[in-house]
């Protein structure tokens, strides 16, 4: 019945336009920053005492090398490392790991260091932001390997 009033091409164009508009609205409605589970944040951080920045940076790099991640960006102060997992860059399994090290002032002498990890999957499409990896096992295994490396290097008892 609509085709009586509008030519077929116009109808198709209108339908497509409507679909595109609807999909844009869906994307725009998504919050820019979704609140994250605090327990996941806690899993991604560790505080170290009695270790200097150089030793912790060296141990972290050693773990990254163990995993065969490729370091792609570095910053010495404050320490920031970005490393890419092996394999195809945009596959579902690939991860970009960001490590940041910050000095935290303490009441006692000296300072403690907080190491934060964030493993991010690649963006699946232009519509979707890369999801932050909340898999606890990766972070736990990384920190366990880091503690083992610090122990092996004689930094931690």
């Amino acid at each position: 019945m609509l085709q009586k009033f509008m030519p077929g091409t116009t109808l198709t164009a209108l339908a497509c336009g409507l679909l595109v508009t609807l999909s844009s609205i869906t994307v725009a409605a998504a919050p820019d920053f979704e609140p994250r589970d605090m327990s996941a944040t806690a899993l991604q951080s560790r505080t170290f005492e009695g270790v200097d920045e150089q030793q912790l940076a060296r141990a972290t790099l050693s773990v990254i090398q163990d995993l065969k991640f490729l370091v792609t960006e570095t910053e010495a102060a404050p320490l920031t490392l970005v490393a890419r997992s092996p394999g195809p860059r945009f596959s579902q399994e690939s991860r970009t790991l960001t490590v940041s090290l910050r000095a935290l002032p303490t009441e006692r002498d000296g300072a403690s260091l907080r190491l934060d990890l964030a493993a991010v999957a690649p963006a699946e499409s232009i519509w979707r932001r890369p999801p932050l990896d909340t898999r606890a096992d990766f972070y736990q295994a990384f920190f366990a390997a880091l503690a083992d490396t610090l122990h092996r290097q004689g930094v931690l008892p």
């Binding site: 999909s23 991640f69 997992s85 399994e93 999957a121 699946e124 519509w127 096992d137 390997a145």
Partner: peptide
Amino acid sequence: GCVSQPQQGVDYFSGQ
């Protein structure tokens, strides 16, 4: 395109 794909986990520590 809108349906999310299930994430396959890779154990990077499998060769520990």
